[in-house]
Amino acid sequence: MPSDPSRASAPAIRTSGLGLFASEVRVLFARRRTWALLAALAAVPVLIAIAIRLSSDGDARGGGPPFLGSITQNGLFVALTGLAVSIPLFLPLTIGVVAGDTIAGEANLGTLRYLLVAPVARVRLLIVKFAVAALFCFAATLTIVLAGTAIGAALFPVGPVPLLSGDTIGVGEYALRALLLAAYVAVSLLGLSAVGLFISTLTTVPVGAMAATIVLAAVSQILGALPQLEWLHPWLFSHHWFGFADLMRQPISFGTFGDNALLQLGYIAVFGALAYGRFATKDILS
């Protein structure tokens, strides 16, 4: 047989697998859809700021949490208001699209089978897909903060920021806290991403997975609002979604950040395991 001995044996090279992650990131950001989602998120603080700028009087808080002072007095509040306004709907919506698409989207395109025979081990694909969905969470919240800061600085005066505790911080420390806040909200969405990943392994119809993920985000928030189900509340992935206020105290309280991270980690573990069970045993027929 004229086979070359160099390729008759098992391949010698073994890369870290980061290449796939990089490739996955490129695929995510090569999609026009991804940019459309980020643009929609960036539009939230921009629209709030413009609306308040145009209306000379009225509610100058822009629907943000009550602790935020008037945006017209301090443009830096635009970013936080934008983030707070996006938490219940816009962010889950975009995360649902990205997370629901992870596996189902590949299955729908048919590219899933080519990835698996490349070969990408199924666990590795799940991990990479989740990592990229998580990356998108951070990109999404960062987009809101950056867009909000930019538009706020452009339209309104900027100055020292009062905290919940009554103390006042400078712009530099505020920037740090705004990034922390973006990180907090991004972490809050990791559980939802894991849920979306699992749902995505159940179907080859990405739209279905996206819709189901978004519906679950809504259901979680509704259950969280029902006082009769108080026992259930700490178990909901949306439980700490509005706990970011703790980052606006002096000194910063990281307790909620930690509780939230732990909760999200639990969701990642549970739904990651479910996704693995489903995906590792699934026949890829698309």
């Binding site: 391949p11 010698a12 090279i13 073994r14 890369t15 870290s16 697998g17 290449g19 796939l20 990089a22 490739s23 490129r26 695929v27 090569a30 590219t111 080519y114 990835l115 490349a118 070969p119 990408v120």
Partner: peptide, 16 residues
């Protein structure tokens, strides 16, 4: 071309 690069990056034994 980008499609092929993508699939190749899935193969851990393929030299980047």
């Amino acid at each position: 071309r980008a499609n092929l690069l993508r699939f190749d990056s899935g193969d851990r034994h393929a030299d980047p």
